[in-house]
Every structure is written in structure tokens, then in C-alpha cells.
Simulated assay, not measured.
Amino acid sequence: MIHTSNIRSLVLTAGILCVISASTASAQTVASCPLQPTVSTKRQTLNCQPGLSITVERGAHFHFADRNRDGRVDAIVLDSKAALVDVDSSRVRGGFEVVTPQAIAAVRGTRWAVDVTGGSTSVLVLRGRVAVNKVSTGQGVTLGRRQGVDVDSSRSTLHVNAWGQSRINALMARLGQ
């Protein structure tokens, strides 16, 4: 269960491992998330541990958190652009979260994308199920394959939608998929 009251603050203060910027990320290893060589200048891929892979769009503003302080990344705080997260639940214990200014998306094991643009966050599930909670209200929804939700900071209700192939393709192209 995701508890949204003050969760963003908790994630930010509970053991941030590293902050990277787009200009220096390609030359670094991020805590337990070494960069993998990529052909494209549009994205970078980090394999944080066996069973956890994160692809971030070039120029994304993000940092990692180790909330339980076990030396492993268990959350990414994403402030802009897109990230594709692939979690193998048989290898990653305790799940993984993507925290944005508008939403918290959490899973035990799946593949999903999160896009932060302006004042909103979009979440798309490619495999498995993802719980998404709205930071401003605590309202939550669960998404399945090919479903998405757009989250803003207002008090409006969340609406789960089946994403069309063109919208999926556009986001996945930004992430090299």
C-alpha cells in the first residue's frame, strides 16, 4: 500500500544515493546503477541491480533513493522528462517506486514508463500492474497492460485510459524502444 502523505518528503530525505545531471551522467556510475553504453544521445540506460533496469530520456532531472538504507536503489525521484522502469519481482525485493511532483507509481515487478512534462505526470504500463497515487489528494488507481493515467496537481479525479498505439509509440520512441 502506498501512503502519499509526505511520501515525497520521505523519499527525498530517507537516503538519497546520488544526484546526476544529463551533462555528467554518461561519464559516471550512479551508486549501484552503472550506465550501459548506448548508441543514442537521446537516452541512457542504468542497470541498478540484477532485475532492475531504468532507461531515462537524455536531459531528465532525477535522482535515486535508498529508502531502507540497504545499499540498493528502491526509488527514482523524477522531476522532468521520461523514464522506463523494468522490475523483475523475482530478483528485486520490496518493489520499486517512481516519485514525481504529481504522482507516486509503485510496483512489485513489471515494466512501465513515466513522463513528467510541465505540471503533469503520465504513467503507462507495458507489462504487469502499477499502483498510481495522486500526491495532492492521495487518490489511487491501479493500471494494467496498455493502460495509462495523466496526473496533475489539482484535486480532480484520476481516470484510467487505454492508451492508443500512437501515444504509446511516441513515448517509447523517446526512450529508444
Rank of each mutant, 00 (worst) to 15 (best):
H3R: 13
T4C: 09
N6F: 14
I7Q: 06
R8G: 09
V11R: 00
T13D: 08
G15C: 03
S23T: 07
Q28N: 08
Q28W: 01
V30C: 10
P34F: 07
L35Q: 11
K42S: 14
Q44T: 00
N47S: 10
S53G: 03
S53C: 00
E57C: 06
R58V: 11
N68R: 07
N68F: 08
N68Y: 10
N68P: 00
D79Q: 14
D79P: 00
A83I: 10
A83R: 02
L84W: 11
V87A: 07
S89Q: 14
R93A: 11
G94L: 07
F96H: 02
V99L: 03
T100K: 00
Q102E: 15
A103T: 06
A105D: 04
R108A: 11
T117W: 05
G119M: 06
S120D: 06
S122A: 13
V123A: 02
V123K: 04
V123W: 01
L124A: 09
R127Y: 13
R127G: 08
R127K: 15
V130C: 01
V132T: 01
N133H: 15
V135H: 01
T137M: 11
V141M: 02
L143S: 05
R146W: 13
G148S: 10
V149R: 00
V151S: 02
N161H: 12
Q165P: 02
N169E: 08
L171V: 02
M172I: 09
A173Y: 04
